[in-house]
């Protein structure tokens, strides 16, 4: 059970998944990560942070229908 959320992949996450975005079904960020890592085992090698609706998450969060999740590998600006 869960909600359909939009997942955006950036940087190395985009290369490892071969996608810039997709819809996944999950009830919280923990279960979303499990779904994602099962689908893309190579993502296990990547350290990343998660943004929920454009806010950086510092702990796990419940997901609502149509939430926007972003997978953020280490930032490389500058």
């Amino acid at each position: 059970m869960g909600n359909v959320v939009r997942v955006l992949y950036f940087g190395a996450a985009q290369e490892l998944t071969g996608k810039s975005s997709e819809k996944l079904n999950a009830g919280d960020t923990g279960s979303l990560c499990r779904v994602m890592l099962e689908k893309y085992p190579s993502m296990r090698t990547l350290s990343f942070r998660i943004a929920l609706n454009r806010n950086l998450l510092r702990e796990e969060s419940v997901l609502m229908e149509n939430d926007e999740i972003a997978i953020l590998p280490p930032l490389q600006g500058g």
Binding site: G11, A51, A70, L72, P73, L75, Q76, G77, G78
Partner: peptide, 14 residues
């Protein structure tokens, strides 16, 4: 500002 940009701006490079 520069240090904050490096830490916070969601930008990636290839």
């Amino acid at each position: 500002t520069l240090e904050m940009v490096k830490e916070q701006l969601p930008v990636w490079k290839k």
